[in-house]
Protein backbone atom coordinates (compact mmCIF):
# COMPACT_ATOMS: atom_id res chain seq x y z
CA UNK A 1 0.00 0.00 0.00
CA UNK A 2 2.57 2.48 -1.09
CA UNK A 3 1.48 5.99 -1.83
CA UNK A 4 2.20 6.99 -5.43
CA UNK A 5 4.87 9.61 -5.06
CA UNK A 6 5.57 11.82 -8.04
CA UNK A 7 8.79 13.62 -8.58
CA UNK A 8 9.67 16.59 -10.67
CA UNK A 9 12.42 15.78 -13.07
CA UNK A 10 14.16 19.04 -12.27
CA UNK A 11 14.11 21.21 -9.23
CA UNK A 12 14.44 24.47 -11.15
CA UNK A 13 12.70 25.58 -14.34
CA UNK A 14 14.47 25.15 -17.67
CA UNK A 15 15.32 28.80 -18.20
CA UNK A 16 17.06 28.99 -14.83
CA UNK A 17 18.99 25.81 -15.48
CA UNK A 18 20.12 27.10 -18.87
CA UNK A 19 20.71 30.77 -18.19
CA UNK A 20 22.46 30.52 -14.85
CA UNK A 21 25.14 28.19 -16.17
CA UNK A 22 28.73 29.43 -16.47
CA UNK A 23 28.57 28.49 -20.18
CA UNK A 24 25.64 30.82 -20.76
CA UNK A 25 27.26 33.65 -18.84
CA UNK A 26 30.52 33.21 -20.80
CA UNK A 27 28.70 33.15 -24.15
CA UNK A 28 26.95 36.37 -23.16
CA UNK A 29 30.32 37.83 -22.18
CA UNK A 30 31.83 36.83 -25.53
CA UNK A 31 28.94 38.49 -27.38
CA UNK A 32 29.30 41.57 -25.20
CA UNK A 33 33.02 41.83 -25.95
CA UNK A 34 32.36 41.44 -29.69
CA UNK A 35 29.65 44.12 -29.64
CA UNK A 36 31.76 46.50 -27.58
CA UNK A 37 34.72 45.88 -29.87
CA UNK A 38 32.65 46.54 -32.98
CA UNK A 39 31.44 49.79 -31.45
CA UNK A 40 34.70 50.85 -29.85
CA UNK A 41 37.53 49.56 -32.08
CA UNK A 42 37.55 51.23 -35.52
CA UNK A 43 39.02 48.37 -37.53
CA UNK A 44 37.53 45.47 -35.60
CA UNK A 45 35.35 44.18 -38.42
CA UNK A 46 37.86 44.93 -41.16
CA UNK A 47 41.18 44.23 -39.51
CA UNK A 48 44.58 43.48 -40.98
CA UNK A 49 44.95 40.01 -42.45
CA UNK A 50 46.48 38.89 -39.15
CA UNK A 51 43.28 39.41 -37.19
CA UNK A 52 40.51 37.72 -39.12
CA UNK A 53 38.10 35.24 -37.61
CA UNK A 54 40.08 32.48 -39.32
CA UNK A 55 43.32 33.48 -37.65
CA UNK A 56 41.51 33.81 -34.35
CA UNK A 57 40.30 30.23 -34.64
CA UNK A 58 43.59 28.96 -36.02
CA UNK A 59 45.51 30.50 -33.12
CA UNK A 60 43.00 29.17 -30.63
CA UNK A 61 42.97 25.61 -32.03
CA UNK A 62 46.03 24.19 -30.18
CA UNK A 63 44.73 25.29 -26.76
CA UNK A 64 41.19 24.18 -27.60
CA UNK A 65 42.41 20.67 -28.44
CA UNK A 66 44.77 20.48 -25.45
CA UNK A 67 41.99 21.33 -23.02
CA UNK A 68 39.72 18.46 -24.09
CA UNK A 69 41.35 15.56 -22.20
CA UNK A 70 42.59 17.95 -19.54
CA UNK A 71 38.96 18.81 -18.72
CA UNK A 72 38.29 15.14 -17.97
CA UNK A 73 41.38 14.95 -15.77
CA UNK A 74 40.28 18.05 -13.84
CA UNK A 75 36.77 16.57 -13.53
CA UNK A 76 38.30 13.67 -11.56
CA UNK A 77 39.97 16.18 -9.25
CA UNK A 78 43.45 15.58 -10.68
CA UNK A 79 45.52 17.88 -12.89
CA UNK A 80 48.07 17.54 -15.67
CA UNK A 81 50.31 20.56 -16.07
CA UNK A 82 52.84 18.73 -18.21
CA UNK A 83 50.79 19.10 -21.43
CA UNK A 84 52.73 22.13 -22.72
CA UNK A 85 56.04 20.32 -22.23
CA UNK A 86 54.67 17.16 -23.84
CA UNK A 87 53.67 19.30 -26.81
CA UNK A 88 57.26 20.58 -26.96
CA UNK A 89 58.75 17.08 -26.69
CA UNK A 90 56.51 15.87 -29.48
CA UNK A 91 57.47 18.84 -31.62
CA UNK A 92 61.19 18.34 -31.05
CA UNK A 93 61.14 14.59 -31.65
CA UNK A 94 58.95 15.03 -34.72
CA UNK A 95 61.44 17.55 -36.12
CA UNK A 96 64.46 15.44 -35.22
CA UNK A 97 63.00 12.29 -36.76
CA UNK A 98 61.90 14.12 -39.90
CA UNK A 99 65.31 15.77 -40.28
CA UNK A 100 67.02 12.41 -39.92
CA UNK A 101 65.07 10.98 -42.82
CA UNK A 102 62.24 9.12 -41.19
CA UNK A 103 59.12 9.45 -43.37
CA UNK A 104 56.89 12.24 -42.11
CA UNK A 105 53.78 10.14 -41.34
CA UNK A 106 55.86 7.64 -39.37
CA UNK A 107 57.62 10.45 -37.51
CA UNK A 108 54.24 11.95 -36.65
CA UNK A 109 52.86 8.66 -35.34
CA UNK A 110 55.99 7.94 -33.28
CA UNK A 111 55.90 11.45 -31.80
CA UNK A 112 52.28 10.98 -30.75
CA UNK A 113 53.20 7.66 -29.13
CA UNK A 114 56.02 9.35 -27.22
CA UNK A 115 53.38 11.70 -25.80
CA UNK A 116 51.34 8.67 -24.81
CA UNK A 117 54.37 7.35 -22.94
CA UNK A 118 54.72 10.62 -21.03
CA UNK A 119 51.03 10.32 -20.11
CA UNK A 120 51.48 6.71 -19.05
CA UNK A 121 54.44 7.76 -16.88
CA UNK A 122 52.31 10.44 -15.21
CA UNK A 123 49.43 8.00 -14.82
CA UNK A 124 51.72 5.35 -13.33
CA UNK A 125 53.10 7.71 -10.70
CA UNK A 126 49.64 9.03 -9.81
CA UNK A 127 47.64 5.79 -9.77
CA UNK A 128 50.13 3.02 -8.95
CA UNK A 129 52.63 4.87 -6.77
CA UNK A 130 49.89 7.12 -5.43
CA UNK A 131 51.60 10.51 -5.69
CA UNK A 132 49.59 13.75 -6.06
CA UNK A 133 49.18 14.66 -9.72
CA UNK A 134 50.19 18.27 -9.16
CA UNK A 135 53.60 17.22 -7.85
CA UNK A 136 54.04 14.52 -10.48
CA UNK A 137 53.21 16.74 -13.43
CA UNK A 138 55.29 19.65 -12.13
CA UNK A 139 58.10 17.13 -12.26
CA UNK A 140 57.33 15.96 -15.77
CA UNK A 141 56.73 19.54 -16.87
CA UNK A 142 60.38 20.30 -16.12
CA UNK A 143 61.77 16.88 -17.05
CA UNK A 144 60.05 16.62 -20.42
CA UNK A 145 60.80 20.23 -21.36
CA UNK A 146 64.42 19.61 -20.51
CA UNK A 147 64.56 16.59 -22.81
CA UNK A 148 62.72 18.46 -25.56
CA UNK A 149 65.06 21.44 -25.50
CA UNK A 150 68.08 19.16 -25.14
CA UNK A 151 67.11 17.17 -28.23
CA UNK A 152 67.40 20.01 -30.71
CA UNK A 153 69.51 22.44 -28.71
CA UNK A 154 69.04 25.97 -29.96
CA UNK A 155 68.41 24.82 -33.51
CA UNK A 156 65.04 24.20 -34.99
CA UNK A 157 63.76 22.13 -37.90
CA UNK A 158 61.85 24.16 -40.46
CA UNK A 159 62.20 22.20 -43.69
CA UNK A 160 58.73 20.70 -43.71
CA UNK A 161 56.98 20.30 -47.08
CA UNK A 162 55.37 23.63 -47.77
CA UNK A 163 52.22 22.22 -49.36
CA UNK A 164 51.57 20.32 -46.13
CA UNK A 165 52.26 23.26 -43.83
CA UNK A 166 50.06 25.57 -45.85
CA UNK A 167 47.32 22.94 -45.86
CA UNK A 168 47.47 22.79 -42.06
CA UNK A 169 47.04 26.56 -42.01
CA UNK A 170 44.24 26.58 -44.59
CA UNK A 171 40.51 26.75 -44.08
CA UNK A 172 37.74 24.48 -45.29
CA UNK A 173 37.05 25.82 -48.79
CA UNK A 174 34.35 28.45 -48.82
CA UNK A 175 34.33 28.93 -45.05
CA UNK A 176 36.45 30.81 -42.52
CA UNK A 177 36.87 27.54 -40.56
CA UNK A 178 40.44 26.24 -40.42
CA UNK A 179 41.03 22.51 -40.89
CA UNK A 180 42.54 22.43 -37.42
CA UNK A 181 39.17 23.48 -36.04
CA UNK A 182 37.63 20.52 -37.89
CA UNK A 183 40.10 18.26 -36.09
CA UNK A 184 39.21 20.02 -32.85
CA UNK A 185 35.46 19.59 -33.47
CA UNK A 186 35.86 15.87 -34.13
CA UNK A 187 37.89 15.36 -30.97
CA UNK A 188 35.52 17.57 -28.98
CA UNK A 189 32.61 15.32 -29.97
CA UNK A 190 34.59 12.24 -28.95
CA UNK A 191 35.60 13.65 -25.56
CA UNK A 192 32.21 15.28 -25.00
CA UNK A 193 30.37 12.03 -25.57
CA UNK A 194 32.92 10.17 -23.45
CA UNK A 195 32.45 12.55 -20.54
CA UNK A 196 28.72 13.21 -20.71
CA UNK A 197 27.14 10.19 -22.37
CA UNK A 198 29.00 7.09 -21.25
CA UNK A 199 29.32 5.05 -18.09
CA UNK A 200 33.04 5.94 -18.16
CA UNK A 201 32.12 9.63 -17.94
CA UNK A 202 29.74 8.98 -15.04
CA UNK A 203 32.70 7.35 -13.32
CA UNK A 204 34.90 10.37 -14.06
CA UNK A 205 32.48 12.73 -12.33
CA UNK A 206 31.89 10.27 -9.49
CA UNK A 207 35.64 10.18 -8.79
CA UNK A 208 35.71 13.97 -8.67
CA UNK A 209 32.73 14.13 -6.32
CA UNK A 210 33.89 11.41 -3.95
CA UNK A 211 36.65 8.93 -4.69
CA UNK A 212 35.35 6.59 -2.00
CA UNK A 213 31.79 6.62 -3.30
CA UNK A 214 33.14 5.95 -6.78
CA UNK A 215 35.17 3.01 -5.48
CA UNK A 216 32.16 1.58 -3.65
CA UNK A 217 30.13 1.98 -6.86
CA UNK A 218 32.52 -0.22 -8.81
CA UNK A 219 34.40 2.54 -10.60
CA UNK A 220 37.97 1.47 -11.23
CA UNK A 221 39.47 4.73 -10.02
CA UNK A 222 43.08 3.90 -10.86
CA UNK A 223 42.35 2.65 -14.36
CA UNK A 224 40.10 5.60 -15.15
CA UNK A 225 42.76 8.12 -14.15
CA UNK A 226 45.50 6.19 -15.94
CA UNK A 227 43.51 6.16 -19.18
CA UNK A 228 42.91 9.92 -18.89
CA UNK A 229 46.59 10.71 -18.37
CA UNK A 230 47.49 8.61 -21.41
CA UNK A 231 44.80 10.37 -23.49
CA UNK A 232 46.13 13.70 -22.30
CA UNK A 233 49.68 12.77 -23.32
CA UNK A 234 48.57 11.47 -26.73
CA UNK A 235 46.48 14.57 -27.41
CA UNK A 236 49.22 16.97 -26.33
CA UNK A 237 51.64 15.20 -28.63
CA UNK A 238 49.15 15.28 -31.50
CA UNK A 239 48.83 19.03 -30.97
CA UNK A 240 52.64 19.13 -30.94
CA UNK A 241 52.82 17.63 -34.44
CA UNK A 242 50.08 19.90 -35.79
CA UNK A 243 51.55 22.96 -34.11
CA UNK A 244 54.95 22.17 -35.64
CA UNK A 245 53.42 21.99 -39.11
CA UNK A 246 51.17 25.01 -38.49
CA UNK A 247 54.21 27.22 -37.81
CA UNK A 248 56.60 25.10 -39.85
CA UNK A 249 58.93 25.09 -36.89
CA UNK A 250 60.00 22.19 -34.70
CA UNK A 251 61.66 23.41 -31.52
CA UNK A 252 61.78 22.19 -27.96
CA UNK A 253 60.29 25.35 -26.53
CA UNK A 254 57.03 25.00 -28.46
CA UNK A 255 53.95 25.10 -26.27
CA UNK A 256 55.59 26.79 -23.27
CA UNK A 257 52.89 28.03 -20.89
CA UNK A 258 50.09 26.36 -22.85
CA UNK A 259 49.14 24.29 -19.80
CA UNK A 260 48.25 27.46 -17.92
CA UNK A 261 46.17 28.83 -20.78
CA UNK A 262 44.30 25.56 -21.08
CA UNK A 263 43.66 25.33 -17.34
CA UNK A 264 42.53 28.96 -17.30
CA UNK A 265 40.02 28.25 -20.06
CA UNK A 266 38.70 25.15 -18.30
CA UNK A 267 38.24 26.82 -14.93
CA UNK A 268 36.74 29.94 -16.54
CA UNK A 269 34.28 27.62 -18.24
CA UNK A 270 32.89 26.50 -14.91
CA UNK A 271 34.71 23.20 -14.42
CA UNK A 272 35.48 22.91 -10.71
CA UNK A 273 39.20 22.77 -10.03
CA UNK A 274 38.28 20.32 -7.20
CA UNK A 275 36.60 17.99 -9.67
CA UNK A 276 33.11 16.60 -9.98
CA UNK A 277 31.28 19.38 -11.80
CA UNK A 278 31.43 21.19 -15.11
CA UNK A 279 30.97 20.49 -18.78
CA UNK A 280 33.27 20.08 -21.74
CA UNK A 281 31.23 22.73 -23.55
CA UNK A 282 32.01 25.14 -20.72
CA UNK A 283 35.73 24.49 -21.04
CA UNK A 284 35.58 25.06 -24.80
CA UNK A 285 33.61 28.27 -24.38
CA UNK A 286 36.22 29.31 -21.82
CA UNK A 287 38.88 28.80 -24.48
CA UNK A 288 36.89 30.84 -27.01
CA UNK A 289 36.40 33.59 -24.44
CA UNK A 290 40.13 33.94 -23.93
CA UNK A 291 40.70 33.92 -27.69
CA UNK A 292 38.09 36.66 -28.19
CA UNK A 293 39.54 38.84 -25.48
CA UNK A 294 43.02 38.33 -26.90
CA UNK A 295 41.88 39.32 -30.37
CA UNK A 296 40.35 42.57 -29.21
CA UNK A 297 43.41 43.41 -27.14
CA UNK A 298 45.77 42.62 -30.01
CA UNK A 299 43.85 44.78 -32.45
CA UNK A 300 44.02 47.55 -29.88
CA UNK A 301 47.78 47.03 -29.93
CA UNK A 302 48.01 45.91 -26.33
CA UNK A 303 51.03 43.71 -25.79
CA UNK A 304 51.36 40.15 -24.61
CA UNK A 305 52.33 41.20 -21.10
CA UNK A 306 49.00 42.92 -20.59
CA UNK A 307 47.21 39.91 -22.04
CA UNK A 308 48.90 37.68 -19.45
CA UNK A 309 47.81 40.06 -16.71
CA UNK A 310 44.24 40.03 -17.99
CA UNK A 311 43.91 36.25 -18.43
CA UNK A 312 45.57 35.69 -15.05
CA UNK A 313 43.12 38.06 -13.41
CA UNK A 314 40.21 36.44 -15.24
CA UNK A 315 41.28 33.05 -13.85
CA UNK A 316 41.53 34.30 -10.28
CA UNK A 317 38.20 36.12 -10.56
CA UNK A 318 36.47 33.04 -11.93
CA UNK A 319 37.86 30.84 -9.15
CA UNK A 320 36.86 33.40 -6.52
CA UNK A 321 33.38 33.85 -8.00
CA UNK A 322 33.00 30.07 -8.22
CA UNK A 323 34.04 29.61 -4.59
CA UNK A 324 31.75 32.37 -3.38
CA UNK A 325 28.85 30.90 -5.34
CA UNK A 326 29.47 27.45 -3.87
CA UNK A 327 29.83 28.85 -0.34
CA UNK A 328 26.52 30.68 -0.75
CA UNK A 329 24.72 27.65 -2.08
CA UNK A 330 26.21 25.33 0.58
CA UNK A 331 25.09 27.76 3.27
CA UNK A 332 21.64 27.88 1.81
CA UNK A 333 21.64 24.08 1.69
CA UNK A 334 22.99 23.74 5.19
CA UNK A 335 20.35 26.03 6.57
CA UNK A 336 17.46 24.36 4.75
CA UNK A 337 18.63 20.83 5.48
CA UNK A 338 19.06 21.33 9.21
CA UNK A 339 15.56 22.72 9.44
Amino acid sequence: MTIETTYLRHDRPLWRRLLLRPEAILIAAILLIVVLSILGIPNYLRPNPGYTISTLLLNAAPILILLLPLTLIIATGEIDISVGSTLGLSSASFGLMFASGIPLPLAAILSVLIGGMVGAFNGFLVTVVGLPSLAVTIGTLALVRGIAVGMLGTTSVTSFPSDLTSFVRSTVPGTPVPWLIVVFAALAIVFGVLLHFTAFGRGVFAIGLSTETATFSGVNVGRTKFVLFVLSGLTAALVGVMFTLQYSNAIGSNGSGFELRAITAIVLGGVSIWGGTGTLLGAVVGGLFIATVNKSLQILGIGDDAIYVITGSALIISVVVGSIASVISTRRRATTSTA
Binding site: A199, R202, G203, A206, L209, S210, T213, F216, G276
Partner: peptide
Protein backbone atom coordinates in the same frame (compact mmCIF):
# COMPACT_ATOMS: atom_id res chain seq x y z
CA UNK B 1 31.62 9.96 2.00
CA UNK B 2 31.18 6.42 0.71
CA UNK B 3 27.57 6.01 -0.29
CA UNK B 4 26.70 9.20 -2.09
CA UNK B 5 28.04 11.88 -4.34
CA UNK B 6 26.66 14.64 -2.14
CA UNK B 7 26.61 17.41 -4.74
CA UNK B 8 25.09 15.24 -7.44
CA UNK B 9 21.38 14.73 -7.95
CA UNK B 10 19.23 11.96 -6.50
CA UNK B 11 18.91 10.45 -9.96
CA UNK B 12 22.64 10.40 -10.66
CA UNK B 13 23.22 8.78 -7.29
CA UNK B 14 20.59 6.09 -7.77
CA UNK B 15 21.90 5.10 -11.19
CA UNK B 16 25.61 5.33 -10.34
CA UNK B 17 26.01 1.61 -9.64
CA UNK B 18 23.94 0.61 -12.69
CA UNK B 19 25.56 3.10 -15.07
Amino acid sequence: KQGLAMTAGVQTNITLAIR
